[in-house]
Design a protein around this nucleic acid. Structure first.
Length: 331
DNA sequence: TTAGGGTTAG
């Protein structure tokens, strides 16, 4: 257990190589005592989310191979593998972009006869979603989970909503969102699932549906955040409805949701694409007055557009502020 | 009740 804890620390520090890990397992599996399950799970969980490092380029894959070795070599009477271990492994497979392997692990879990009521609904559903098996993900969420004795949580819904929206099936996502919030729904949606579906409608060009849902969430007492507002504002800008976009901007400020550089960027680009340079510059000034900056690429193209349309004075102003802010940063 | 996992702009 001490050895596993030390190895877990090294995983977090990015200094544990695959060879080190294999040596560790050589030792653990030769000992007469069972591998301590909790420390093992902690170690695998650390590997599952370790970024690539010089010592180990693909930690999730390493976790999968170590797990396979445990299945082969660990004494069945002292098996440290629990439903929790399988959850970590399925998560690993998702991170390694091998959802097919994750589903195979789930199949193995079912065959072991371990209790399934602790199955990690989120990891399982994410495997189906990443494998592009969207309809099965929906079916697991709505039917299969209860057969396994588990309850879907808000995150499980969230990942399914996202994949439906990615598939341009936002209306179906809205149906699921309604199921979450209806009486007896297992988990009331917060701002994230609402924002996901709102963004889905926006991407499909159904801005009025997005606005309807925006109003609905307010009625349900869920407060939109900067992400929610920015999605709608961007969609309105792309639909050339700049007056409505600005009214959402005022609405958010009035409700103490601070617009960020993404919000302003959408509006500036909206006005720019319509050739409304005065309005674009006005929004830019509002943005800088709040201490916000455009990213380099957007700012450079904004300056260039202004120059190309005979607005060199405004272009100079923006370039000047850019130099000033760089001076401030370096001081 | 062993860990940590969902949303926006480009």
């Amino acid at each position: 257990s001490a050895a596993l804890a030390a190895a877990t620390e090294r995983v977090r520090a990015g200094t544990l190589s695959p060879a080190d890990a294999r040596h560790l397992f050589d030792e653990l599996l030769q000992r007469p005592t069972p591998v301590p399950g909790q420390a093992l799970n902690g170690f695998l969980a650390a590997l599952a989310r370790a970024p690539a490092s010089a010592a180990c380029g693909d930690s999730p894959a390493l976790a999968v191979s170590l797990f396979n070795r445990l299945c082969r070599e660990a004494s069945p009477h002292a098996s440290p593998l629990t439903v929790h271990t399988y959850s970590i492994l399925m998560d690993c497979c998702c991170r390694a972009r091998r959802p097919d392997l994750g589903l195979a692990f789930f199949g193995r879990l079912l065959r072991t006869g371990l209790r399934t009521d602790g199955v990690d609904a989120y990891a399982l559903i994410k495997c189906f979603c990443l494998a592009k098996r969207t309809d099965e993900a929906v079916s697991v969420l709505l039917h299969r989970l209860s057969e396994l004795g588990c309850v879907p949580d808000a995150l499980s819904y969230s990942v399914v909503l996202k994949v439906l929206c990615d598939d341009s099936r936002s209306q179906r996502a809205l149906d699921l969102l309604r199921m979450m919030s209806k009486e007896g729904g297992v988990c009331a949606p917060n701002v994230v699932p609402y924002s996901t579906v709102i963004h889905g409608f926006c991407k499909e060009g159904k801005v009025s549906k997005a606005c309807d849902l925006f109003n609905k969430m307010g009625q349900q007492g869920v407060k939109p955040n900067v992400v929610t507002y920015t999605s709608i504002i961007d969609a309105l800008c792309k639909a050339r409805a700049m007056d409505k976009a600005e009214s959402f901007l005022r609405h958010m400020v009035d409700n103490d949701v601070r617009p960020n550089n993404v919000t302003y960027k959408c509006i500036i680009q909206g006005y720019s694409s319509l050739g409304l340079w005065n309005e674009a510059v006005k929004i830019f000034r509002e943005m800088t007055s709040r201490g916000l900056m455009l990213d380099d690429v957007t700012r450079n193209s904004f300056v260039a557009s202004l120059c190309n349309h005979g607005r060199s004075k405004e272009a100079a102003e923006i370039a000047h502020q850019m130099i000033e802010s760089e001076t401030t940063v370096s001081n």
